[in-house]
Amino acid sequence: GPIILDTYSVIADFTKTSKDEIELRAGDLVEIVEKNSNGWWFCQCDYKRGWVPASYLEPLDQPEEAEEAEPDYGGEFFVTISSYTAEQEDEISLQSGEVIEVIHRLLDGWWVVRKGEETGHFPSMYLQKTGDKE
C-alpha cells in the first residue's frame, strides 16, 4: 500500500543555515520522511526536500512519538565526542571525552545530561554510547 508519512505543523519561521536544509514558515504543513535522533528530520513539502529542525515542528494529530514523559535519573552513560559551550542558561558546557549520564532523550536532539551535580541540555549528535553500565 501507499506509504503514509507523518504530517507536522511548523511552529515558527526557520531560516536555513546550510544548503541541505529547507526554509520553514510558521503554519506550514510538512511531511517527514526520516526522523534522525540528532534532531534533524528529513522533510518533503511541496516540491522541496531537505533537513529541518524537529524543534520547530509539532504533530498535526495526536503525538505518537516514543518520547519519555519524565527524566530517568538512572540514565545511561555516554561519552562526549565533541566539545560544546552552552549558549542558553539551561544548557551545559562539556569538553570532548567527558563521560556523562543521559537522563532525558528529547526528540529535538537536545538531550538532558548530568555530569556530577550539574545538569543541562547538550546536543545528542556529540554523544556516543560508552558500552558499560558503570
Binding site: 511552529i11 536544509e21 534532531g39 534533524w40 560544546y84 539551561d90 528529547l106 536532539g109
Partner: peptide, 22 residues
C-alpha cells in the same frame, strides 16, 4: 537520494516553546 543530515546541532526550540527539563 537522501543526503546526510547537517553536521551542526539543530537550533533549540523557539523560547516560547522550550520546555523546562532541568
Amino acid at each position: 537520494t537522501m543526503k546526510n543530515p547537517p553536521q551542526n546541532p539543530p537550533p533549540r526550540p523557539p523560547a516560547e516553546f522550550r520546555r523546562k527539563h532541568v
